[in-house]
Write a protein that binds this DNA or RNA. Structure first.
Lengths: 171, 171
DNA sequence: GACGATACGGAACGCACGCCCCGGTTGGCA
DNA sequence: TGCCAACCGGGGCGTGCGTTCCGTATCGTC
């Protein structure tokens, strides 16, 4: 690859990182190109589609998340709670993580599997109500992340979700 | 108004009710017109804008919700929980309610006020954690509704949210 | 320094959608 | 029944966005 091409590729990635983090997947691609100081055509020389650029920006972060979820832990309940806490913190700071786990992609299957394992182990330890399915947990997490972008207090919201996971309601 | 005009108005409203309920605000207006068996121009003769049509379909339902939230109750905690339960049930069945309370509108202020009152009374009775603000509750509710549309089990999700509202996490 | 391959930029295309316009039609009153 | 105002349909406009095309500029080599 030519030197200027490599330079432009980095400029595009850098601009995409900033704008996807600020505004999520919905930023116009022209805006990314403008921030990078290149034309839209140049973006498409390096990434075949907007989705591909988005993946290039988010894939590593999501994969790190998946790995941290799959890692063994001696307190399964705490591990699940720590994972959700980390997820919330990351999503509150960068809007693109929420889109990355909401838009369809192959990575999602891995994430679901990892979350399923985390949930199962936590349920085995009695730390989380037993009638929760992986699908429920994923949906709950997505809803929580989106609430964060609407200005909810992250700490309070997280506490509510975590305490709600533990047991059924008091009579 | 001419008889055929009145008939068409009803056909448009009926089609809009169905499609907004199924797909939310995002259905193309042309699709609503097609389902009603009229042209797009006819829709605009009766409703100046897509938003206006959406409001015509949802306003009454939202207003009923607000009134039920504002009604006095002898058990404030149960009243708040009942309201959220009803909201979840309604939103699980009809997608447009979620959009109606997410998209900006004047009705939202009323809803926030009603929810704020409900929350305050429940907190006064000690049924809900005291550090929760109205904004937090609204964000939590929106997140819950959206989680429902992602396929979460409504019963389980609702229980999690309600039990989470009550108290902080076990140590 | 010249030349070919490579990359650039931005104008242009296709598409989807909200919204408007106008020639034709229809309803209801005289 | 005839007439006109009200109304209808759908083609068309403007906009925003993802994507593509191509004439031009730039890089790296001989």
């Amino acid at each position: 690859m030519r030197a200027d091409a490599a330079r432009n590729r980095e400029k595009v990635l850098s601009a995409a990182r900033e704008l996807f983090a600020e505004q999520g997947f919905d930023v116009p691609l022209d805006e990314i190109a403008a921030r990078a100081g290149v034309g839209p055509g140049t973006v498409y020389r390096h990434f075949p589609t907007k989705q591909a650029l988005f993946q290039a920006v988010t894939e590593a972060r999501v994969r790190t998340m998946i790995e941290s979820a799959a890692a063994p832990a001696d307190d399964p309940g705490a591990a699940l709670f720590a994972f959700l806490t980390r997820m919330a913190g990351e999503a509150a700071a960068k809007r693109d993580l929420t889109d990355a786990i909401t838009l369809p992609s192959e990575l999602l299957d891995d994430l679901h599997r990892a979350l399923g394992g985390l949930l199962h182990r936590a349920q085995g330890a009695g730390a989380v109500r037993a009638d929760l399915t992986t699908g429920d947990l994923v949906a709950l997490m997505k809803g929580m992340l989106r609430s964060l972008h609407e200005g909810a207090n992250p700490g309070v919201l997280l506490e509510i979700v975590l305490s709600g996971l533990q047991s059924s309601r008091k009579p």
